[in-house]
Design a protein around this nucleic acid. Structure first.
Lengths: 207, 207, 207, 207
DNA sequence: GATGAATGAGAGTTCATTCAT
DNA sequence: AATGAATGAACTCTCATTCAT
């Protein structure tokens, strides 16, 4: 009810103007309520922004997760996840990525953002590990997850600014992710270490 | 001269405290000059930050570019570029990456940031293109560069917090990058399109 | 009834936090009623505080007066009054003295405070006057009452912080008061005027 | 220079309106400077008020102390001190007592006021002790000082509101103080303890 | 050439007070 | 009879920016 109205307005204004450039007056005006209501419900500007962040993050995760079919083959799961990820961002340009970027660059939310990112990285890391039949103990799946999530964020940013096409971006990311799961080519592993393991597909064949 | 002293101070403080949390007083104090001098040279806080951004970006690009030897094999070139990239960030924690993150969150620097990002992406994109013998016209090297730079930034952040070793991180990134250039495996390309091209190595024989 | 409950809560909170630091919300919460009720009964914060002031002042005066036995000797009357005064304050720390101190600092309650002070001073003044057989017309009993009440307040404050024992403090005050009523010693009165009068004790023989 | 101008304005407005009812805007306007100057010099409203308090207290003490001639007899010293005390308050109605009363009733300055009062009480206590030739060890000079200072404050308040004549008030206080130094009358001491001691005058004779 | 001194404008936050029910 | 919900108005404090020297 009233809370949604307030969060909607806050997300809207924060997204357009940025955290610091946004005044509580502006949010109250947009929400067509008085400033004290904002403080009654959210306590402070920082907490209000945090609430925006939480809501948008939840929506985002929920949407992406709902698109994942755990009965699919690993590769299809991956493809659908990436597509859902980028599509959501493309569809909601004015919300998630913008808030996320705001948060990223403010000392006050550094912790929240870092924590959120770690959760995603852990998730991706587990995905990688579980997708590999004989994981090489020396493979740093976590660092690989860091790289992949970083690539995803960068591409998502492009998508959110309208500078990239969702489908092409998805295709590129999927390729990158998938290959990341395969062991290094023979001649390369000879130079720099053993393969990271072999990938198990739904069919159980290696590709 | 005086300008460097001011920029040094500004970069230092901006990096530590963020754009909005930094006051001109603090910068003037750090630079050991008076506030009017800052305004004389840079006109406004925004312009000062822009100048910081420009200088650090240029330093960064210059340093990385200087480490690239265009006579090397594509793979060595890539390896050296990645190493230079990560090493620079590891050595200069209070510079480009941090400012870049700050800038990302303010509408006012959208232009500058986009421009800076483009310069890096162009550089990486050219590197990728130049490493591919028969570039597929449909390959979006720029988007690939975006992804790779994103991955690089994420890993670099890890490196800069001391959570990762530069050499190992570089190796991981290089593997990821390299495979990305080798075209998708057969069954995949059959499903989703042709390989992105074939890579030319110095020996011309690998993969 | 309901009004007492509200006043009790208000006195309690005002005493602890002071007038300005106390919010109507806090009082309503303490009284376990809603804020509009407070306004229904008392109109405004100022009036509510005034009502507290009035009630506590009346209770205080009533209690002290009830302890005075006008059939006793002047000295016993005085002793009992002082004892009642200090005991009341010691027993009811969160009441009149505290509110009185609060009220002193706001222009808005100047009138109420002055009035309350006058009532106490009148009482004490009458006590003093009634204890003097041949009151010197030049003796300013009211001013003496002012001084005595001031001394009493100061000592009472000490008592209420636990830094003094009620009985000893009473003894000390009584001595001071009593001597004040006995007129200046000869050489002094010669210099600065006649004694303030002579005291009539129950026995009529002392001094 | 500027600081005096600011303090003057602040004392003026604080005295008239009270601490809480006074806004920094009002003080800045009265001082004909801008609000940030107030904050530059005094940091906060609380500190500004503290500075007013300090300055007025110092002026007050200095004035009173300058009027005391330590070569006089104890009684003359006392008389002059009391006169200086009340005269100063009478002459500076809009400053010292008003600020002092404000401070007394604000949680934030309770400590400062208490401390100041303790210093005065200590001083008076030492005065009493030193004025007594054979001090009775059971005499609570400190509590007596508390009472006397309380009486002084009360009378001073009357003076500061114009409700009392300085000379008469001084005479009354002096009598009270002076008698406080003399032992209790025989019949009384028999009941409640020995005299507090005997007073030593400049001439060495008892009065 | 350089700055100490000064400020206009605005932000976040709180609270006494009142409708609409 | 009683209140949950709402707000207008004000306050403290900060900061980018500029004179006057």
């Amino acid at each position: 009810m009233r809370e949604q109205q307030m969060l909607d307005a806050a997300v809207q204004i924060f997204s357009v103007n940025g955290y610091h450039e946004t005044s509580m007056d502006a949010i109250a005006a947009e929400a067509k309520i008085s400033k004290p209501m904002l403080y009654l419900y959210y306590g402070s500007k920082e907490e209000l922004f945090g609430a925006c962040l939480d809501r948008e993050l939840s929506r985002f995760i929920e949407e992406v997760r709902s698109q994942i079919d755990f009965t699919q083959s690993p590769k299809d799961m991956l493809r659908n996840a990436v597509l859902a990820f980028l599509t959501y961002i493309d569809t909601n340009r004015a919300s998630w990525m913008v808030l996320y970027n705001q948060a990223t660059s403010s000392q006050a939310f550094a912790h929240t953002v870092r924590e959120g990112r770690e959760r995603i990285i852990d998730l991706v890391g587990r995905l990688l590990r579980s997708g590999t039949r004989h994981p090489d103990p020396e493979t740093d799946f976590d660092m690989m997850a860091v790289a992949l999530v970083g690539a995803g964020e960068a591409v998502a940013n492009r998508v959110s600014t309208g500078d990239a096409d969702v489908d092409e971006a998805a295709e590129l990311l999927i390729n990158l992710f998938w290959r990341g799961l395969k062991g290094a080519p023979a001649e390369h592993s000879a130079e720099h270490g053993p393969p990271a393991g072999t990938v198990e597909t739904a069919a159980g064949s290696q590709n």
